[in-house]
Amino acid sequence: MKHLLTAAALCAAVLTAPVLAADGAASAPGKPTAQQSKMGTCNKDAADKKGDERKAFMKECLSAKKSTQQDKMKTCNKDASGKKGDERKAFMKECLSGK
């Protein structure tokens, strides 16, 4: 029985080694993945938060999608309410350019 368990453990180790090696190669040093970059950015932004507030912020930050042009347009339109003519045109240009 003891030999059977040893053989099973040895087989499991041999079969999982290539999978583990492939994972290690994928996360080799160099350019960070998109998720790693996002995590770094969110971490910096959450530096002043602690506990539940930080946890909630990180969850929101990591799940946030990139803003689409349509989303940007809605936000800028909302922010431009009350502006007219050239003032509105200048505001919208600035807002949509992301500066």
Rank of each mutant, 00 (worst) to 15 (best):
residue 1 M to T: 13
residue 1 M to K: 13
residue 1 M to S: 10
residue 1 M to R: 13
residue 1 M to L: 13
residue 4 L to T: 14
residue 6 T to A: 15
residue 10 L to F: 15
residue 10 L to K: 03
residue 14 V to T: 15
residue 14 V to G: 14
residue 14 V to Y: 05
residue 17 A to F: 03
residue 20 L to M: 13
residue 21 A to F: 02
residue 21 A to D: 04
residue 22 A to N: 01
residue 25 A to W: 11
residue 25 A to S: 15
residue 28 A to N: 07
residue 30 G to W: 06
residue 31 K to R: 04
residue 31 K to N: 10
residue 32 P to S: 14
residue 34 A to R: 07
residue 37 S to R: 15
residue 39 M to D: 13
residue 41 T to F: 03
residue 41 T to W: 03
residue 41 T to D: 05
residue 45 D to S: 15
residue 46 A to F: 01
residue 46 A to H: 00
residue 46 A to V: 09
residue 47 A to N: 09
residue 48 D to T: 11
residue 48 D to S: 15
residue 48 D to H: 07
residue 51 G to F: 02
residue 55 K to S: 02
residue 56 A to D: 10
residue 56 A to C: 12
residue 57 F to D: 00
residue 57 F to H: 03
residue 58 M to N: 05
residue 60 E to H: 11
residue 61 C to G: 01
residue 61 C to A: 03
residue 62 L to K: 04
residue 65 K to R: 14
residue 70 Q to N: 13
residue 70 Q to V: 14
residue 71 D to V: 09
residue 72 K to A: 14
residue 73 M to L: 14
residue 76 C to W: 00
residue 78 K to E: 08
residue 78 K to I: 10
residue 78 K to S: 07
residue 80 A to W: 03
residue 81 S to R: 14
residue 84 K to M: 06
residue 84 K to G: 02
residue 85 G to I: 07
residue 85 G to M: 06
residue 86 D to I: 02
residue 86 D to N: 02
residue 87 E to T: 08
residue 88 R to F: 00
residue 88 R to Y: 07
residue 89 K to M: 02
residue 89 K to V: 05
residue 92 M to E: 01
residue 92 M to R: 01
residue 93 K to D: 03
residue 93 K to Y: 01
residue 94 E to D: 11
residue 95 C to Q: 11
residue 95 C to I: 07
residue 97 S to C: 07
residue 97 S to E: 08
residue 98 G to Y: 05
residue 98 G to P: 08
residue 99 K to R: 12
residue 99 K to S: 09
residue 99 K to C: 12
